[in-house]
Design a protein around this nucleic acid. Structure first.
Lengths: 233, 233
DNA sequence: ATTTAATAGTGTAACAAATACACACTATAT
DNA sequence: ATATAGTGTGTATTTGTTACACTATTAAAT
């Protein structure tokens, strides 16, 4: 509690693991810190929770500052309170993760605050060394997402509204880190009856036009109780 | 932040949902508050987190004060930070749940602290009205436990070291709130190969002695990835 | 001694879900 | 014309899930 940290509102912070999906890869938004401690290091976007806002609101604020978007899917992950996680004393952080359609972004993220020098998307599989215990927080997030996509349709939060089954499969493969069988994936995914087949096609990277689908939100809830698994590899 | 709450260490608290299992019922340990606000109301055991302890340590302290036991299974549940959850201002609470073998208790729990007038086990299905948002916290805990027993062997934390398959099944039934098929339950549970058959039997409530089992801790981990489900009813 | 009541313990057949697996079709680039 | 990259499709096998009913044992009551 030295060094000019504001007092009443500085006891705890939030940090947010923002996931995006592009080019078949999962990405995480990191900021380059412009403040001590860890000045110049990469870190998760996060900030002190103000005294008159809920934690959720603080996270929404951080998300908006970094992406310019509202209404992003987010969920509380875990609260970290190790005595040594912050060099300036025991600062508790409530960590969240958020899932973002990268296509919705108008431009590269620009940090609105001055605590960050820049904000950059990093591939999840090639992260730089991170400040504080942020690496640990990211690891815990990805494990949660990995589990959660098998029983709830959160994966769709990472895709554009209209998507091909191939894109959806690539997303699952990226999150789980293993290849899935195309025929089994499609069979199972379509069987859940939560996808609406659109009359449109998309050329994309492929040489052949692929059918577009979108999530049928009315049928969303059904899957929430089931478990999804896919196989081969 | 009025009325004499300590400052630096009073910004957030922990509350702990302590589950126990006895007489075929899930129970929750509640205290009767002896302090304002909500003096005389039933509430979850909980307290301010001291400035030099981790959140986990604070919960362990609370568990020990109320049960006299150490090494109890516990896990962080969620952090609640609504502006209106506490009448004296925004006090954040990190909620935990704990699973306890009631047989390990030497005696009825006696509150060691003076913020509680008494501590009493309440059946989960017949709870009194609770202080703060504690009812909400309990609801969220039971949902987590319900989910978690299907992919991890936490249920055993609620049973004595040696138990019969009937006891184990009753526990699952209590947590899920529905009857399970005896033959299917046994078949599946034994197939997981995480139970060690003991050469001992126990009479218990039954008229016929029943085989005792214990958890085989070496094989524990295997189940952690699978999902368990049982059927009929 | 016999009966009653409570509980332990056991197997199989039908069905559903998960898995492994390979080729033809189309558009594009050269 | 041909090579390339990606879409889309069906079946047989194995595995897991479900429904279902009786006998054996013992304590307690008569």
């Amino acid at each position: 509690m030295q060094s000019g940290l504001p007092h009443l509102q500085s006891i705890f912070t939030t940090d947010c693991v923002i996931f995006g999906f592009k080019e078949g890869e999962l990405k995480v938004l990191l900021i380059e810190r412009n403040e001590y401690p860890f000045k110049g290091w990469w870190a998760l976007p996060g900030f002190f929770v103000e005294h008159n806002e809920t934690i959720d609101d603080a996270v929404k604020r951080i998300l908006y500052e970094h992406t310019g978007l509202r209404g992003i899917f987010m969920e509380q992950l875990y609260t970290f309170g190790d005595l040594k996680r912050h060099p300036q004393g025991r600062i508790i952080t409530v960590a969240y993760y958020a899932l973002l359609r990268l296509d919705d972004l108008k431009s590269q993220p620009e940090p609105v605050t001055d605590y960050a020098r820049q904000a950059v998307w990093h591939p999840l599989n090639d992260l730089p060394e991170l400040a504080f215990d942020h690496r640990h927080i990211i690891d815990k997030s990805i494990m949660k997402v990995r589990r959660k996509i098998s029983y709830s349709p959160i994966a769709f939060e990472l895709l554009p509204e209209k998507f091909t089954l191939t894109q959806l499969q690539q997303l699952y493969e990226a999150i789980w880190g293993r290849k899935l069988d195309k025929r089994n994936f499609r069979k199972k995914m379509l069987n859940y009856n939560i996808l609406k087949e659109l009359p449109e096609f998309q050329r994309g990277v492929s040489y052949r036009a692929a059918r577009l689908y979108k999530l049928d939100k009315r049928k969303y809830a059904k899957v929430f109780q089931n478990e999804l698994t896919f196989s081969k590899d």
